[in-house]
Design a protein around this nucleic acid. Structure first.
Length: 412
RNA sequence: GUGGUUGUAGCUCAAUUGGUAGAGCGUCGGACUGUGGAUCCGAAUGUUGCGGGUUCAAGCCCCGCCAGCCACCCCA
């Protein structure tokens, strides 16, 4: 038997949940003035090397990279921001005026060890707000994130924010961290030892060495004046909007492009993979990709994790499969049933028996499929034009002409 | 990539000191020849995750692989 690839999923009975969540998110993004962008699933490898950062774990060990038949190095996208920004630069979208606001929903690929809430093909919903350096843009982005979660009825999530500074102040902070950790180096875990040189910021969110991180220097004490003002304004705006948040200096994103604001929305009930949204500001990314410097903010939301969270709150709506199941009493009525189904399918969700079942089994089938109504088509009905309509919730029956049937089913 | 743990019917699980695989649910059919969700009766279904080894005999013991889950790691 051929089985699915490790770390991938087939969405079979839950597809309607996905559709429902996607529609809610799409709707929120559009109501905040974002328009959808669809970029390719694979890109030149160089895009992620430069955008996400060569030293990041994503690029170092998690990308699906291969050579195509033309000898190009190609990579299945591990995240959505770099491709959107590539398109922004490639089509010179800045010329249409700023800001540009995009959202996307689609599959991403990372070669990781799978576990619940972490897949090799997973799906993200995200937005990019391109062109504004002001804190109101950060807040707007955070609002879209929160309103998206609220739109699907999610409640037990927590917003955490932090600032990672900019190219002016981050170096001095990194120095301070190196000073702090230098004498501790021997006691750190092996991962942290390599991170010490490669990306010292990541020492802060290591779970094993969390104790050391507690008394480590705090980035907020090292911010330059501009970054400090930006962060203060962000917080005061959030306060004015009554958005609850927690400042958490251990929030360090794993992608190199972040500057200043970073935030995470956590859903603690999910266990180890509890970050359902991650985002922040990336003021240098456009320039890194060869465009003219354009400050931007955005976030990415993990669809699988959000749907898991939704399940813990039992907020998933039930799905009504069928409005009207049309029963053929005898084989002579099969064609009549098809004819009626063809017409009514224009306005109702209909279903019919395709297995040659007897009346009783057709009813059983209608029940199983949660049909709200059953229409019985027998010799009598065809002759008189008066069809038997049964409401399944209480079993009441009536005889009606077809247009009355449609009206009754639609109006209830 | 590291460590731990699990893998038996579509699902949840059972199978004595190794003795040749079973129950509930679900599916399908019948009781009810034009009426569902209840009840009763009946039926079908497994290369015991895969491959090898030990043994007269392996679901059970041993080795390898694969997959799921948990933690690390990573991050959404």
């Amino acid at each position: 038997m051929i089985k699915r690839i490790k770390g991938t999923n087939d969405i079979i009975e839950n597809a309607y949940i996905w559709e429902w969540v996607e529609n809610k998110f799409r709707n929120v993004a559009e109501h905040f003035g974002f328009s959808e962008i669809r970029t390719p699933i694979f890109e030149a490898t160089e895009l992620f090397d430069r955008g996400v950062g060569k030293e990041t774990d994503i690029v170092q060990k998690e990308m699906y990279t291969f050579e195509d038949k033309g000898g190009r190095s190609v990579t299945l996208r591990p995240e959505g921001t770099a491709p959107v920004m590539r398109a922004f630069v490639e089509y010179n979208l800045a010329s249409k005026g700023l800001p540009q606001k995009f959202f996307y929903i689609g599959p991403m690929f990372r070669y990781e060890r799978p576990q619940a809430g972490r897949l090799r093909q997973f799906h993200q919903y995200g937005i990019e707000l391109i062109g504004s350096s002001l804190p109101i843009a950060d807040v707007y982005t955070i609002l879209v994130a929160i309103e998206s979660l609220k739109a699907i009825g999610l409640e037990n999530f927590k917003l955490k924010i932090n600032s990672t500074g900019c190219e002016k102040c981050r170096p001095s902070y990194k120095e301070a961290l190196k000073e702090y950790y230098k004498p501790l180096l021997d006691e750190l875990c092996s991962d942290c030892k390599t991170r010490y040189n490669r990306n010292i910021l990541r020492l802060l969110d290591c779970k094993r060495d969390a104790e050391y991180a507690k008394s480590a220097p705090n980035i907020l004490d090292y911010l330059c004046d501009d970054c400090k003002v930006h962060f203060e304004e962000l917080k005061s705006l959030l306060d004015k909007l009554n958005v609850e948040y927690e400042v958490d200096p251990s929030i360090v994103r794993g992608l190199d492009y972040y500057t200043r604001t970073v935030f995470e929305i956590k859903y603690p009930l999910l266990g180890a993979q509890d970050a359902i949204i991650g985002g922040g500001r990336y003021d240098n990314l456009v320039e890194e990709l060869g465009g003219t410097s354009t400050p931007s903010v955005g976030f990415a939301a993990g669809m699988e994790r959000i749907i898991l969270a939704l399940k813990t709150e039992e907020k998933i709506p039930s799905f009504q499969d069928v409005d009207l199941y049309i029963v053929a009493v005898g084989d002579d009525q099969r064609a009549d049933v098809l004819k009626i189904a063809k017409e009514l399918s224009k306005v109702l969700r209909v279903d019919v028996d395709l297995m040659g079942r007897k009346v009783k089994s057709q009813f059983k089938n209608a029940s199983k499929g949660n049909a709200r109504y059953v229409l019985v088509v027998g010799e009598d009905e065809v002759r008189s034009g008066l069809y038997t309509l049964k409401r399944m919730s209480d079993g009441t029956q009536m005889r009606l002409p077809i247009d009355e049937v449609v009206k009754t089913v639609k109006d209830s």
